[in-house]
Design a protein around this nucleic acid. Structure first.
Lengths: 217, 217
DNA sequence: GTCTATATTTAGATAGAC
DNA sequence: GTCTATCTAAATATAGAC
């Protein structure tokens, strides 16, 4: 059976963002994509902006739920990278990169979209953090890595790859390959003995101390 | 003396993107920001879209020129990171992150903006590549790193940090700190002896081979 | 090159029939 | 809850005076 009108309108909003962009979404383009009457946008959501934020929250919840199992099954940093690359391919094919770009742009002029996007990212970051805590539990990298910061860096880099894809898809493949190399380096460090481990940790500590003192001074 | 009308219109376009977003730019908001008459948009550029792409190209050229010297002065990977972080702070203060987000969104529905944005990134990537070639010239990382891919990964990650900043500025600071840690790790590898160097290189080679065979098979 | 005025289209939003 | 009809505001674009 077909979903109710509220859901159809949110689906239509995402579809309209995909085909017309944030600059082209309107009650009419959304209603057309949803296959319902234009006035229902205002009856169900009050305004186009309200519908936009509702659709943003709704679609991320759907997406995160879809990928949750794959995140949970990840057993190494390299596997996390592979899942990321697969996600990228899948999201691109689904046209969701375009949607993300539109919402990130809209967040800058619409506080409600900004809040919805922030909450959406929080869902993704929570998944990444869970995976990192698990993966780094018995790893030398776990002793030095700042998991919350690393999760956000991973999320931000992924966002960057997504958006860079919009202007240069070939460049993104090169970039993914380079990050795979970086992952191999980290994996190598993961297998180091206690002496080298201590040396790496000391090097990182020096860096962190430098940053902290310059930030607080 | 004040710039000519064409330039004022391009400046006005960037200002309008900043305050109204891609969804809110119009011949009227642009003209208001530029302090000129609305009809001049069409006289000088033919359409709002043409003006948008012209402004995109123009503003990146101005920006890249502004940062070129700082890129050229970079002497280590960590310094490159520091320049990136300073750029981020400066660009945020100037409101240019918002502009970037709007153009990236517009690129998905407007091929001309996509082309202009691609060319703009190419300018940035060229600067990063130049710096990387110089920095990795006499470094063990230079033997294993794929410079074009790495430059694109750095550019993409930076874009991601910029855009993530729009929804969670505090998270970005955590992320930058985590990347600083990663930089410290790489710097440590940079100082390793020939034996460890070979081990890292072998680990990376295994990865690359795996990827290449799976991509071509 | 720049301005005023305006034709035309499209957007957000609401009233009221069903 | 849904539709038609419509009001109002704002956008693109052009014609023509200066």
């Amino acid at each position: 059976m077909s979903p109710d009108t509220r859901t159809r309108l949110m689906e239509g909003t995402i579809a309209a963002l995909r085909t017309h962009g944030i600059a082209g979404v309107s009650a009419r383009t959304i209603a057309a994509a949803a296959g319902v009457n234009q006035a229902l946008v205002f009856y169900h959501f009050g305004s186009v902006d309200e519908l936009l934020t509702a659709a943003c929250r709704w679609s991320t919840e759907e997406q995160v739920a879809e990928y949750q199992e794959r995140f949970a099954a990840v057993g190494s940093l390299r596997e996390l990278q592979t899942v990321g690359r697969e996600m990228h391919a899948q999201e691109r094919a689904a046209g969701n990169i375009t949607v993300l770009a539109q919402l990130l742009a809209g967040a800058h002029t619409n506080p409600a979209i900004a809040a919805a996007t922030r909450d959406s990212f929080a869902l993704w970051i929570a998944e990444i953090e869970k995976a990192l805590v698990r993966l780094l539990a018995d790893s030398p990298l776990g002793e030095i890595a700042d998991v919350p910061g690393l999760a956000r860096a991973i999320c931000a880099s992924f966002i960057g790859m997504e958006l860079y894809d919009g202007v240069d898809p070939d460049g993104v493949e090169l970039a993914f390959d380079a990050l795979d190399q970086l992952g191999a380096v980290l994996e190598y460090l993961d297998g180091l003995g206690p002496t080298a481990r201590r040396a790496v940790r000391a090097a990182v500590r020096r860096t962190v101390k430098k940053k902290t003192s310059s930030a607080s001074g």
